[in-house]
Design a binder for these strands. Structure first.
Length: 280
DNA sequence: ATGTCAGAAATCTTCTGA
């Protein structure tokens, strides 16, 4: 089999896979991305448009979903093994699925598509059960990674983590300090999750920490681009062995203009691991 | 507090979740 020079992995909260099916095809055609991790597919597994997506070039799929809300998937041009869905906080709510990508036998790569709960409006776990669930979910997924992997494993976490951790990850740090997605308690929880396997925030490896980067813009602005009140809620993390293989990270903000748009845009990671393996 | 989406269940609109 011909080995590709790179492996590209996208993370995209698509806000209904059926509503935006043609945009998956467009993303495939315009970027050629190898793997797409989806969140908020909002489709039951029988309703998931598997055949159509296979025809777009992604015959290998890991899907978890039910009607109405949530739902995650991994779409791949490469075979997927060991597909596992993970329930956290005693729920089977289709927020986390993983698969092992088998490009070569020597270095398996485990890819996770994750959708962290949004958390409601009030950033107080004592009065808002959704916020309490969000914090418990992040703790639970941190425990999962702390207990299930070694620091030498190749692991990619791609998802809507619903937290914008850095001041430059939101349009106004001071104004959002008490707004859910940017509160100190959520940022601390996300940091613990990140440390669970010494994950590296791939985008911030290639974009300076002070540069504003957003992946989500609310539907409620009349003109999302003019207002530009965005947040970086979508992340791709890699485990330490993959750090030196980050070949680039791109936020496809133009996708926010594709009609009808999701409120999130894809983040794409390029890994150079395969090329390095060829050279050694 | 506001606005805008998407899906479900039940209608021709309201609810929930985001």
């Amino acid at each position: 089999m011909l080995t590709p020079p790179t492996l590209t992995i996208a993370s995209w909260n698509i806000n209904s896979v059926r509503r935006r099916l043609d945009q998956i095809e467009r993303l495939a055609n315009e970027t050629g991305v190898d793997v797409i991790c989806l969140q908020e597919t909002k489709a039951s597994e029988p309703d998931f448009p598997a055949a159509e997506i296979a025809a777009f070039g992604y015959p290998h799929q890991a899907v978890a979903g039910f009607g109405g809300y949530n739902g995650v998937a991994i779409l791949s041009r490469w075979p997927l093994g060991q597909i596992e869905r993970h329930g956290h906080c005693e729920r089977e709510d289709a927020r986390h699925i993983s698969a092992v990508i088998t490009i070569n036998d020597s270095e398996p790569l485990t890819i996770h598509s994750v959708y962290v709960p949004a958390g409601g409006d009030i950033p107080d776990a004592a009065v808002n059960p959704k916020f309490a669930h969000k914090l418990r979910f992040i703790d639970a997924i941190a425990d999962y990674f702390a207990g299930g992997f070694g620091f030498r494993d190749n692991v990619v976490v791609a998802g809507d983590l619903n937290v914008a951790p850095l001041p430059s990850d939101v349009w106004n740090h001071a104004k959002l300090a008490r707004i859910v997605t940017h509160t100190p308690i959520e940022i601390a929880a996300l940091e613990r999750f990140k440390r669970s396997l010494h994950f590296i925030d791939a985008l911030r490896e290639v974009v300076p920490e002070d540069d504003p980067v957003f992946t989500w813009w609310s539907y409620r602005a009349a003109d999302w681009k003019a207002a530009n009140k965005g947040r970086r809620l979508d992340h791709i993390w890699v485990s330490t062995p993959l750090k030196d293989k980050i070949g680039g990270v791109e936020v496809l903000s133009d996708v926010r203009n594709w009609a009808p748009p999701s409120d999130h845009v894809p983040v794409v990671l390029k890994l150079d691991m395969i090329r390095e393996q060829l050279e050694t």
